[in-house]
Amino acid sequence: MMMAAEGNTTTMNAPKKLLFVLRQAPYGSTLAKDALDAILATSAYEQDLSIAFIDDGVFQLINNQQSELIDQKNIARILSALPLYDITQLFVCAASLAERGITLGAISEDITVLEPEALRTLLSQQDHLLSF
């Protein structure tokens, strides 16, 4: 896996800044679940890990997902476990929320809302971007 190879060349005292960019709605494909699997696995390497929800990715944050009706894992529920994996840097694009009419009241995660300009800055500060 890419992360493992990366770990071999990284010195222990210099964690990389990794940003997972999630752009897909939760259940139309397996990408949202795949991204979460990658995120949880990556957390074991103790890097400087953050997540940005952009475009349709903001739909992953909506609480009250009834995924059991389509026999799928509940993405929102898995997201709520992130603090236990020491993943606390969560960001969401303000413009993506507004375009889709999603208010913060519909989101249960403890998350920082960023305007597109601040989001661009966040992206430019990373060592690696992993886009799903």
Binding site: S43, K73, N74, R77, I78, S80, A81, L84, Y85
Partner: peptide
Amino acid sequence: EFYHTFDVSPAMRPLVKY
């Protein structure tokens, strides 16, 4: 209880925390 709450089986670190 962890699995019913979060829909995943925990790895070691989250298990210890929980």
